[in-house]
Design a binder for these strands. Structure first.
Lengths: 154, 154
DNA sequence: TGAATCCCTATCGAATTAGTAGGATTATCA
DNA sequence: TGATAATCCTACTAATTCGATAGGGATTCA
């Protein structure tokens, strides 16, 4: 049930884009330095996010990336699906990209006990990821930052 | 967030062991035929389940496998962890086999916003899989079987 | 003894993952 | 107008994992 590095990195970078101070848009070089991700690899990830309409880019000098949407309108679930495919543990339990079981292994899909369990798991994952927006994450990060500053009397 | 075939096959076979009619123990040949899984591959999976104490085996003629525990005391979560490792989408969010983030990427793990989200996901998955036993699955299968028999007036 | 069974280990091809590499294109600015 | 800094595009690759396949040894029972 593992997340790929692409899904991991994409969510980190988007959160960085939400909270970044300084000039916009933000270049891949800056993003890579701040997140400790290989720059060339990150270029590919940003390209994928761009063609999915999550970020928009500006080319040329002082170019870079910025969010194409309001953070409160962008869920983690959407991003993970773009980078890693359906959330469901088994293709037969995906609601967004359903693929039936091989017939000989699961004759009547609707009455397959294992599939109904994977559907439960899929729904449990989706409930968390589709309700959490990058706006939520941004506020959480800001409040935990405020807390740690208070702890150290800064 | 995909399940491997090993996790998939293991759960199918264990459910088959719960519901199988006929002589016990059940040979791998029979199990492979009934589940449409390659026999040699299934041997490896059964070996892993045996050394984890999920099934017990008898060697020699009329040997085979049977459950080592009561179906009501065996959860799907336990089996998936044996076959596929921790349920958490990220090693830093595993409760059973925690591995910290590389320090340069996530300085203070306790305040990492992404990690707390992966923990939520992990807990959502575990809630389903650790509450569902093979006894539950067996009863679900039997009731759906009874229903389909009634539908066809058998 | 022979057949059926589990048991163990090695191998292997295909796919996926996680990056590298190189360069073309585009925009800005001095 | 030319240098520079950025995105963009495509190909390649090394390592790992996945999903088996293969062969044979050990064990039990009739």
């Amino acid at each position: 049930m593992k997340l790929s590095t692409r899904g991991d990195y994409a969510t980190r970078v988007l959160l960085e884009l939400c909270t970044a101070e300084g000039p916009r848009p933000v270049s891949v070089t800056d993003l890579a330095n701040r997140t400790a991700i290989s720059q060339k690899y990150l270029e590919q990830i940003m390209g994928q996010l761009r063609s999915a309409g999550i970020v928009r880019s500006e080319r040329g000098l002082h170019g870079g990336y910025e969010l194409a949407r309001e953070p409160d309108g962008l869920t983690v679930g959407e991003v993970i699906r773009i980078m890693d495919g359906p959330l469901a543990p088994s293709p037969c339990a995906s609601r967004s990209a359903h693929v039936p079981c091989p017939a000989y292994r699961c004759a009547v899909e609707e009455s397959c006990v294992m599939r109904s369990l994977w559907l439960e798991v899929r729904d449990a994952i989706a409930e968390v990821l589709d309700r959490t927006t990058f706006g939520d994450l941004t506020r959480r990060q800001q409040s935990s930052l405020a807390l740690s500053r208070a702890m150290y009397h800064i």
